[in-house]
Design a protein around this nucleic acid. Structure first.
Lengths: 236, 236
DNA sequence: CGCCATGTTGATCTAATTCAATAACTGTGG
DNA sequence: CCACAGTTATTGAATTAGATCAACATGGCG
């Protein structure tokens, strides 16, 4: 599979959880026990119910995490971008499914060896703890979005989030890479495909965004988009 | 304030995060740096936006955690029961508000001293990591609930959750202690007070639950309640 | 080209919200 | 102990945001 060419435009790993700041010794140790994996678009990494013994780092591409109800309704719990982890299911995990959205380069760390490394290098445990804490904050924000925001507010928040991500990766914050389908976005925001499509159309009609290239959304008016997001904050 | 009497019926700390399993030495150390606090019902512990420098353990009573949108809509992100922690906002926290639901006994641990203890006792860091991981799993389940479940499914899931909690505290799993208001429940489940009230009424009419004592809900038919919960699981 | 997945748009429909009225319960002070 | 004020809960009627159903467009790819 020649996915290097396809992945090229979306590379650049900047703020890795396992990135700069770790002792070289630890970095080597982690590197040794890990392995690189390449997957095409729309492939499964692991399924809800599997007992996954690994932590994955996305090196390149986008991964989608989701959970299902018994009758097949899906909730997307997150999109994972380069430098971020998934698969950390310590504790009495209930599990989720991880699939690729784009072609993806992954680094796999067996959980057992990370566990051992944590004994030797407390800084690793710290970093993990910090990471899960941040995930928890993100999860709480998503609960606010799912439970209390309108379709327009949801979409606006989502687009602004993509923009931050874009900026964090030193790329144009107005040119949003949106490789996931409308259905994926819908399942992330607690909406239907149709509503996502309609809401995007409305933002387009309002001149807030433009759909120039397929797979990208261009933000024209950040101010009005921010107004719609009606975001977090009793920052009195 | 004589709240000992009022709190008596809801005591018993069983599965504390800082409970059995920690070295005695560490336990002492934690105990020394911590302090006990008593609060009445409906008091604020800290507000969204405050930079909170502490981790709290609920010793007795129930605490409610919530976030607000700019225009005042509220999302309850969780209820905290005896033995559980809140206030862990490492990382680039955005914060939330913590208020008491009932009269509450809290143990406060300054974050800084926990941090130091983690250096000396890696087991503490482990325990924290395990705890945040479990919180993350709970958060993902809540996202599924908020994004994809109907009002009846939400209520059924909530009641079953309370039942598990009740059982975990060695109390009757059919007699649910529900000290929070319908509004609190609504803000937790992404509904309105009226819908929560109506849905409870419907379960009552169906003979699935009974409202005998104020502040409690009695489950009569777990099987049908479980059917309604339409719960997590592609446990193929 | 023609197939299949994805996306858009329109016309209904409905679950839950909103608005409104009343009831029940809590606590407070005379 | 009771009245009355305030919060909390219930129930009904009207409204609506978003879902569902349906038709068609687009676009990538063998």
């Amino acid at each position: 599979m020649l996915m290097h060419t396809k992945m090229a435009p979306e590379s650049a790993t900047i703020n890795s959880v396992f990135g700069i700041g770790l002792q070289a010794e630890l970095q080597n140790r982690l590197h040794e026990t890990s392995s690189l994996h390449y997957l095409g678009a729309h492939e499964m990494v692991f399924m809800e119910g599997d007992d996954n013994e690994n932590v994955y780092e996305v090196v390149e591409g986008v991964v989608i995490l989701s959970k299902l109800t018994a009758d097949g309704r899906r909730q997307v719990t997150g999109f994972v971008y380069p430098g971020q982890l998934f698969g950390v299911s310590l504790g009495d995990s209930s599990g989720y499914t991880a699939e690729t959205v784009t072609a993806v380069r992954l680094r796999r760390y067996p959980y057992q060896s990370l566990d051992q490394s944590m004994d030797l290098y407390p800084s690793l445990g710290r970093r993990f703890l910090r990471w899960t804490s941040n995930e928890l904050v993100a999860a709480q924000n998503q609960m606010l979005l799912l439970g209390r925001k309108s379709a327009m507010e949801k979409l606006a928040s989502f687009l602004l989030h993509l923009s931050e991500r874009s900026e964090a990766q030193d790329r144009d914050p107005a040119r949003l890479f949106v490789p996931m389908t409308r259905g994926d976005i819908a399942d992330y925001l607690g909406l239907t495909t149709e509503t996502v499509s309609r809401t995007i159309s409305r933002f387009r009609q309002l001149g807030i965004i433009e759909l120039r290239e397929r797979g990208y959304i261009h933000v024209c008016d950040f101010d009005r988009l921010t107004d719609f997001a009606e975001d977090e904050g009793c920052l009195h």
